[in-house]
Design a binder for these strands. Structure first.
Lengths: 335, 335
DNA sequence: AGTAAAAGTTTACGCGCGTAAAAATTAAAT
DNA sequence: ATTTAATTTTTACGCGCGTAAACTTTTACT
């Protein structure tokens, strides 16, 4: 930087100021530096910068399972918006393993991020590890809420999802049973079940929750196996099935196909299947999946916005906020 | 570190040595330090470390599209193995955008990685940018080969994929036509087409390459639209279709379902469909997809191994190696 | 016990940059 | 042309650690 300052005819502290914020120097000064920049392609050393700055521009984005297209899609959007907001995002996935999630948080501490956007594993998360992390690093939770943790939460309104799908299914045919994992990894799953039960009461139908066995994040396989088991043991309590999430539904549809059961709302269809999430692949299932869509854009943009505000506010909000975005019902062929 | 060295009763240079490599100090010394570590939870500042070390332990992993489960799966495995090898991996995705790929390489330069594992976009990549990057940073290419770039390439043997699927399809029924994008993003697609043509000649059948329009990485949609168009304009030249990759096949299967065409090898099936990749979702398509599987494990482990050797060798190999792993034919219901 | 090799200690420097303070310069305003 | 505010320059220090050199202590081995 010393040398570069010399060739650009500006003092080093001013050059340093320029790289911190190009608009903080006079226009003529900026132009001189930028002219020199074209000829000498100097880049400040990021490690030296971050060692001396109290606050880096790093942002950590943590998701529970990047191989799930839902998360890779939302991570993609969040990443983009972080860059637009002037941050340097780094993407992490715990791939469903709690200890990896803890390791990621540990690694994040060491890069002294301005803030972290965290979608926790959920039930399997080490709550005390996350709590102590949030105490040290400004953190916004998204997608999956852990009560009281982080400075803010941005996610989707599970009741909005389920109420719309249930309402639609009841309006257009039989009331649905609810298909889910017995021990869901994600807290959203619990909220969805509760929403289903609530809707059953409101609309006056008998709820049936069908729980299937399975651990981990291989939801499609769990859904497929669970559905095959149920189908060969007397079938579902209703011909209309609402799945807790699209990945389970993908497994269910594959099981139905295997069993020769036609899914859809037309004549000759044995089952109707609807679900929640609007997973990127749900348009290509057979039949295409009727589902309640996340507002990907709202969740991702609001998460990053909230993080920006948090960093601006010095890392703490006076009170923790929770923002939930409603779902949008997407009618396709499966129900 | 000064203070920590004091409380642990060891000199600072030795403590520094310890954090560089715990095994480089005497056992008794190590134990003293680790005992102190339990009580004072000191962590060396990663920025100060990397500023002074000639070589960081950072490794960049770059994939073209993380929302494609194929890449998220291979990225997952590579990430794991990097950690096991003592590296600090960071994951990047260009999400199909060439300028983002260039930005990523630029960002990678600034973190001075020990090495980079790069799966380039392919046709859309800025070759000169990648070339100049590889000249500066030790790079191993994987999945997608760019002639002469990087110190090594590790990928799958496209001929092995196509020869096995074609051979199987011919053996068990009619010869396949080949379904692909007119302007594929990935160089593997071209190799697969050539392999198909070569196999047609070897086995003595008339090749039919069916090309569909479409740009970008939304392969399922492109495959679906393309297939719908073809099906409503006279159909495919053969009742057996080999897709260039699984994501196109997923779109094709969805189009077939929509058209009421039964896919599979049994009686009453109008089409047989096979493909390449063994995409994580290909087990759950309707019907499940017969495909040639990548050796995910071999490709990912060998890539990381090769990178380790490269770093060990000081960043340069005397000659560029290309390693291709054969496919494994996975017979499912679609063909 | 004696000795060479291995490991640790002291001392000191430098990495590349942020940043503070005081002085000097420039730009804007009366 | 003066005054005043805004920038820039000079000078200087420090961040947290890697690392080299010379020296001292510990370990391993005959």
């Amino acid at each position: 930087m010393e040398e570069f300052a010399a060739v650009s005819g500006i003092s080093r502290p001013t050059v340093s100021k320029y790289f911190n914020d190009p608009d903080s120097v006079r226009r003529t000064t900026r132009e001189k530096i930028e002219k020199a920049l074209e000829r000498y392609e100097y880049r400040p050393n990021i490690y030296a910068i971050n060692q001396n700055r109290k606050l880096t521009k790093n942002v950590g984005i943590v998701v529970p399972f990047l191989a799930d297209p839902f998360f890779s899609e939302i991570a993609r959007q969040i990443e983009q918006r972080c860059v637009q907001a002037g941050f340097r995002p780094t993407l992490f996935s715990s791939y469903g393993v709690p200890s990896v999630e803890v390791d990621i948080l540990e690694a994040l501490r060491s890069i002294k991020p301005a803030g972290v956007l965290l979608a926790p594993l959920g039930r399997a998360s080490d709550r005390s590890a996350i709590e102590s992390f949030c105490a040290d690093i400004p953190t916004v939770l998204f997608d999956s809420n852990l009560e009281g943790m982080g400075e803010a939460f941005v996610g989707s309104d599970n009741f909005s999802f389920v109420s719309q799908t249930v309402e639609y299914l009841c309006r257009s045919g039989d009331a649905p049973c609810f298909f889910e994992m017995a021990t869901p990894a994600n807290p959203n799953a619990n909220k969805r079940r509760l929403a289903y039960l609530e809707m059953a009461e409101r609309l006056g139908f008998e709820p049936h929750v069908v729980k299937i066995e399975g651990e981990g994040w291989a939801f499609e396989e769990i859904g497929q196996r669970g559905a095959l088991k149920i189908l060969s043991e007397g079938g579902f309590p209703s011909d209309t099935i609402l799945c807790s999430n699209d990945r389970l539904a993908i497994g269910l549809l594959s099981a139905c196909y295997e069993k020769g059961l036609r899914v859809g709302r037309g004549d000759g269809c044995a089952l109707r299947v609807a679900s929640n999430d609007d997973h990127p692949f749900s348009r290509f299932t057979c039949p295409s999946l009727t589902t309640a869509a996340h507002d990907y854009e709202a969740v991702s943009s609001r998460s990053v916005e909230r993080l920006g505000e948090l960093v601006e506010a010095g890392g703490r909000f006076s009170s923790r906020s929770e923002e939930l975005f409603p779902a949008r019902l997407v009618l396709r062929e499966s129900a």
